[in-house]
Design a binder for these strands. Structure first.
Lengths: 130, 130
DNA sequence: TTACTTGCAAATCGTTTGCGATATA
DNA sequence: TATATCGCAAACGATTTGCAAGTAA
């Protein structure tokens, strides 16, 4: 794995940003420092970095994927109104997979959990409509 | 809501099929009964039916969406090898959202949970390689 | 009758890929 | 220097949409 300037900047960007940006948002941010970087390069590096475990690709609802500079296991909560995504303050439920043993013929390997809700801003806006 | 022939056939197809097909698979099945139906019609009806709560759109990992003729809350388990999707034999964890209260500023509305694993067939194949 | 729905085709959107040029180790 | 990576642009696959014609209520 060759540490290119592009790869480093993408990784740093993701580690600083706490907003779980999608590929296109990463591209826009990185472009301010490296105007000639291409979107293809961003996609390629996000893939490589998540395969290395440096970042994680958030594979849940929503048509466009988000990326998280924190590679540790944790859940997220998504605003159903504005699509903002935050960390969910809840430890990983390690026991949850064990509940399936015996009742499924699958070999259970992992799980994904995501919460849905209204973020503080959207709640505010909804409230002020009344 | 106007019950067209197309809409009825799509709904019935989904209720019979236990495999959680994607839009294109629904299209292929329905096409055997109605050769002139278009893929656009399938997409439009899957959307309408899931908004009505007659079926559900499975909004989880994977780039293409799956549909379930059973509108009741339940979880799924996905084979990481062949992408087969089955119902997970586990009741809905209603208490899980309550654990977030107090620790998040979101108004929690729901959650999505999906298990990952190896289906019986893929386990078999993996085993026979040794 | 009329507004909702269809079939068709083109458009859109996120993402991936082929290629020749570039730069890291 | 060798080869992984880049920028660019075209390709891709799933999904959506505009429109004129068809049809359920």
């Amino acid at each position: 794995m060759r540490m290119t300037r592009q790869r480093r900047v993408i990784l740093e960007t993701l580690q600083e940003k706490k907003t779980h940006p999608c590929a296109d948002e990463v591209y826009e941010i990185v472009r301010q420092k490296m105007p000639r970087i291409s979107l293809g390069t961003v996609y390629r590096n996000l893939d490589i970095l998540s395969e290395l475990g440096e970042i994680q690709k958030i594979e849940l609802s929503g048509s466009l994927k988000r990326f998280d500079g924190n590679p540790a296991k944790h859940y997220h909560i998504r605003c159903i109104n504005c699509d903002r995504l935050d960390d969910a303050p809840m430890p990983s439920l390690e026991d949850i997979e064990g509940r399936l043993h015996g009742s499924t013929r699958y070999k259970v390997i992992g799980h994904r959990l995501e919460f849905m809700g209204l973020c503080p801003e959207c709640m505010e806006k909804a409230a002020s409509r009344w």
